[in-house]
Computed example of a mutant assay.
Amino acid sequence: MLRRAGDGPSVVVCTTCRLSTDHREDGEGQRGGALLSRALREAQAADPAYAGIGVEDMPCLFACTRHCAVHIRAPGKMGYVLGGFTPGPDAARALLDYAARHAASEEGVVRYADWPEGVKGHFIVRVPPEGFVVS
C-alpha cells in the first residue's frame, strides 16, 4: 500500500478529491484532485522556479469536507494540509509559491505576510515533523 516518495519538499495531492462541494467530477468525469494535480504539473513545467518541489499523487487525504486537498511537506519541517481549492492555474501557482517558501524556511513556518493570497483561508491542519512537537 505504501510506496516510496521523493526525499525533498513536495506537494502531495489527493487525486480522489471532489471537484466542489456539489460535484464529484467535471463534465468529462475527472475528479477535482486529478485536475489539481494536472494543473500543478503544468505550472511546474512552465516555471523553473518550481523545479525543486515534487508533486506527488495519492488517493484520499481524508479531508473530504475540504475538497481538492493537498499536503505540503519537506524533511524536518512543519507540514500543512490545505483544501477547498478550485483546480486550475491560479490555485496551482499559489500552492507551488507557498511550497517553495516553505522549503526555503528553516522549520517550515512561512510568515503570514509572505503567504500567496491564493492559500489564505485554505489551511486545515499543521503536522509537526517526525520526532518533534511545537513548543
Rank of each mutant, 00 (worst) to 15 (best):
G29V: 03
G84K: 01
Q30W: 06
P75L: 12
A5W: 15
G29R: 03
V11R: 02
G52Y: 00
V11T: 03
I124W: 00
G8V: 15
E130Y: 11
P59D: 05
A34Q: 13
S135L: 13
E107S: 12
D97S: 07
G8K: 09
V81S: 00
E28W: 08
A63Q: 13
T65W: 14
V119P: 01
A51F: 12
A99S: 09
V110Q: 04
D7A: 15
A92H: 04
A92W: 04
G131M: 03
E28M: 07
R38G: 05
G29C: 05
V133E: 14
V13W: 01
S37A: 15
K77T: 13
P9M: 07
E130Q: 14
A63Y: 05
V109N: 01
L82K: 02
G27E: 10
P129V: 09
V125S: 12
V119T: 04
L19V: 08
E130M: 11
E130K: 15
Y98I: 05
E28K: 10
P116D: 10
E130H: 14
L19W: 00
A69N: 04
S105G: 06
E25C: 06
V133P: 01
D114K: 12
L61P: 00
P59S: 09
E42S: 02
C60S: 08
G83E: 00
C64Y: 08
T65Q: 14
A43D: 04
R93T: 01
D26V: 07
R24L: 07
F62G: 06
L35W: 06
H122T: 00
A43M: 05
V12L: 14
T21D: 12
F123M: 09
H71E: 12
V55F: 12
K120F: 12
S20P: 02
R18N: 12
D90A: 15
V133D: 08
R4I: 07
T21R: 14
L82H: 01
V13A: 02
S10N: 11
D114V: 06
D97H: 04
V13N: 04
K120V: 13
C68R: 03
A74P: 11
V13P: 02
G8W: 11
A100F: 03
P87S: 10
V125L: 15
P116G: 09
C60T: 05
V109K: 03
V125Q: 06
P89I: 07
T16H: 13
V125F: 08
G118Y: 01
S10H: 13
S20Q: 03
